[in-house]
């Protein structure tokens, strides 16, 4: 399996790739907050069009991103069902004693879009920013928190290492699953108990291997003179240029107008 992995960095030289990681993190946060505060249709539309623009500009194949959305279809479905039957309001129709309301349906649809926006926006961030750059970006943005004795550097390194190891661990999980299946593990057994027991045979070796990996990675990083401290050189490499100012200015203006004025 050497395909594209969920949220994995895709090499590229597009304008989105070139933007400063801090710009992308800020825009991502703006999108997330706007959608959490205000979920009127025009905010959703604005966010969706922004995401569409980013996808086009980043030159990532849209099909790949849409395919990854498919994994969330059950979540979307369940959300929609619960929202539409549990919201009180003007009833549209009913099945037995369960009433589906107009308000519920519209809330359900908007919730699906909000989930989609949350998902797409974070995926696009990690797809267009290399983990080390993302780490430097987070570290630089949240540097003031260091005054509160929050280990900002450690957190950012943690995120970066986690992102780096997603494909490796997925690959390992697939190998383990195949190995256990070839020994007769029943991953598709009708009995839930049997399935859970089979999963344990994958998860336990996976956990053990991950701990081994962590140990190896620590030794390798230490051997390369990593001391666990924050790295000013890496942070100073970030350049907040004209493009970033332009992108950030544009996005914040549009959002201020939409979210608060209308």
């Amino acid at each position: 399996m050497k395909g594209l992995k969920l949220g994995q960095f895709v090499r590229g030289n597009s304008i989105i790739h070139q933007l400063d990681p801090r710009t992308k993190i800020i825009v991502c946060l703006v999108v997330i907050f706007s959608i959490l505060i205000n979920y009127k249709w025009y905010v959703i539309l604005l966010n969706m069009s922004l995401i569409a623009a980013v996808i086009i500009l980043s030159r990532i194949e849209p099909a790949k991103i849409l395919r990854s959305l498919r994994k969330l279809r059950y979540l979307f479905l369940l959300t929609f069902i619960f929202q539409s039957i549990l919201t009180s309001g003007e009833p549209l129709f009913h099945v037995g004693s369960v009433y589906v309301t107009r308000e519920g349906v519209s809330l359900g649809v908007s919730t699906i879009f909000r989930l989609m926006i949350l998902y797409l926006c974070s995926t696009l961030l990690t797809m267009t920013t290399s983990p080390l750059k993302l780490a430097s970006g987070i570290e630089s943005l949240f540097a003031p928190l260091r005054r509160l004795r929050i280990p900002v550097h450690q957190f950012s390194m943690l995120i970066s290492a986690a992102l780096r190891f997603i494909p490796t661990i997925i690959e390992e999980a697939q190998i383990l699953t195949r190995a256990q299946r070839s020994r007769g593990a029943q991953f598709n057994s009708p009995s839930v108990i049997v399935r859970i027991k089979s999963m344990a045979a994958v998860l336990i070796p996976l956990l053990a291997a991950s701990l081994q990996r962590a140990d190896d990675l620590a030794a390798a990083m230490e051997s390369r003179c990593y001391t666990g401290g924050s790295n000013q050189i890496r942070i100073s490499k970030l350049r907040f240029g004209k493009k970033d100012k332009l992108a950030l200015g544009l996005v914040s203006l549009v959002f201020l107008v939409f979210v608060f004025c209308i």
Partner: peptide, 15 residues
């Protein structure tokens, strides 16, 4: 300089 057994576990960045 040190190089270890498993190449996957010593690479820090995806570039």
């Amino acid at each position: 300089g040190m190089v270890f057994q498993n190449p996957d576990n010593q690479i820090v960045s995806p570039i």
